[in-house]
Amino acid sequence: MKQSAPPLRRGWTTGSCATAAAKAAWLVLLGHEPPASVTITLPSGQDVAFSLCQYGGTPDAPCAAVIKDAGDDPDITHGAMIRCTVRALATGAGLVFKAGPGVGTITRPGLPLPPGEPAINPVPRAMIRTALTQANNGTLPDAEVTISIDHGQELAKRTLNARLGIVGGLSVLGTTGIVMPFSCSAWIQSIHRGIDVARAENLPHVLGATGNVSEKAGQALYDLPDMALIEMGDFAGGLLKYIRHHPVPRLSLAGGIAKMTKLGQGCLDLHSSRSRADMPALAQLAAQHGAPDTLPELIRTSPTVAEAFLLARSHNFPLGEVIAHAAWAVAHKTLNPAPVLLDILVFDRSGTLVGKADGPFTP
């Protein structure tokens, strides 16, 4: 009998790790022995304990460090050293956050914090305020908190930070304090922030793409700046629903044949594990749009959309155009009633445009 796989292990956000390090460093500043572990309170009210891996700094500016454990989530910061240095400020100065090495600085409007601020998001800031208040006998101290992430500048190259206008390193993120394994939330949040930046910059045209090939091809087609590019991946619904409430003047959606087929069939999550192309439905769609007599049956029995597309090409049937119009209808319905000009771009694996739609299908 086949045994079920063990449940995936949850982890901790960068913000939670920074909070634990900040609390430990403040306790040292108050004269306590460096604790082996500290307990922090998550936004949900749950208390969790973190082990400290390293101490340093000076008596006036102690530093504590936590190694991030992202659980079973494929997080690029899993195993990263999150450091926090604290020092007391003059009475009335409040709590001041600084970006140390490996933490980025915001340079563009549209993000939750204004340009010039360190990329330490509001929820981690609130968690740190709570933790320092706990460590300081119930009173929020006047203090400077500097967060650093070892190798953060290198790791940031694998994120969307540069496109969002965050330079110099990573963002300190987290809305719940917990990383859910293979969670979609972080990616969808990056989509939302990309749209916010584009709106703040008054960009007239935004491109959401499912992958690198379609993004580069769509960018070249319209000569768009990097800031206008939204890496939506499989989360077409996350992008469309956000734009419905936060409109941009014009939106292009670009993707490969298979993913755009799934969008045209009503799937807003395009990941292979969560949606599949319906080949009989694709065959029926081709027949409705004048496919040669034998082609619909060939499409119906094709194992993949890619093979169906090759068959359609051999019959001189514009399946890419049909797919584009079907995807446009679903995307347009999802955007409604937002006043957004919409077009769909379908590319093959080489980046060649094989289908385009900017309105309802007309024979």
Results as ranks from 00 to 15, higher is better:
residue 191 I to L: 06
residue 353 L to Q: 12
residue 281 A to K: 04
residue 183 S to N: 03
residue 312 A to R: 01
residue 302 S to K: 01
residue 61 A to E: 15
residue 218 G to Q: 07
residue 99 A to W: 00
residue 154 E to S: 15
residue 54 Q to V: 02
residue 266 G to N: 04
residue 261 T to Y: 01
residue 165 G to W: 03
residue 82 I to Y: 02
residue 22 A to H: 09
residue 25 A to I: 00
residue 15 G to K: 11
residue 55 Y to W: 04
residue 343 D to M: 11
residue 320 G to A: 02
residue 66 V to Q: 10
residue 77 T to Y: 09
residue 278 D to N: 14
residue 353 L to C: 11
residue 144 E to C: 15
residue 238 G to Q: 08
residue 265 Q to H: 03
residue 112 P to F: 13
residue 23 K to F: 00
residue 178 I to G: 13
residue 237 G to K: 10
residue 161 N to G: 09
residue 18 A to E: 00
residue 242 Y to F: 15
residue 217 A to D: 14
residue 298 L to N: 00
residue 271 H to G: 10
residue 142 D to Y: 08
residue 349 R to P: 01
residue 360 P to T: 05
residue 60 D to T: 14
residue 360 P to I: 02
residue 154 E to P: 05
residue 150 D to K: 04
residue 328 W to E: 03
residue 69 D to Q: 06
residue 122 P to G: 11
residue 14 T to Q: 02
residue 105 T to K: 15
residue 82 I to C: 07
residue 51 S to L: 02
residue 293 D to H: 09
residue 37 S to R: 12
residue 237 G to P: 13
residue 274 R to P: 01
residue 28 V to C: 15
residue 154 E to M: 11
residue 287 A to Y: 02
residue 162 A to F: 09
residue 198 A to L: 10
residue 333 K to H: 14
residue 27 L to M: 15
residue 291 A to Q: 05
residue 97 F to V: 08
residue 335 L to K: 08
residue 76 I to G: 06
residue 246 H to K: 05
residue 99 A to C: 05
residue 78 H to A: 07
residue 16 S to P: 08
residue 288 Q to V: 09
residue 274 R to Y: 01
residue 255 G to C: 14
residue 304 T to I: 00
residue 336 N to C: 12
residue 172 V to S: 09
residue 237 G to M: 13
residue 215 E to W: 06
residue 330 V to C: 08
residue 107 T to H: 10
residue 52 L to I: 10
residue 78 H to K: 04
residue 93 A to T: 05
residue 270 L to D: 04
residue 43 P to F: 04
residue 10 R to C: 13
residue 356 K to A: 15
residue 34 P to I: 00
residue 152 G to K: 10
residue 5 A to T: 15
residue 232 M to I: 12
residue 280 P to M: 13
residue 286 A to W: 03
residue 151 H to K: 14
residue 244 R to G: 09
residue 310 L to N: 00
residue 141 P to E: 01
residue 342 L to W: 07
residue 198 A to P: 03
residue 149 I to F: 00
residue 58 T to P: 08
residue 89 L to F: 02
residue 275 S to Q: 14
residue 246 H to F: 10
residue 213 V to Y: 02
residue 107 T to G: 03
residue 363 P to G: 09
residue 288 Q to N: 14
residue 91 T to I: 13
residue 58 T to Y: 03
residue 226 D to T: 05
residue 291 A to H: 02
residue 351 G to P: 10
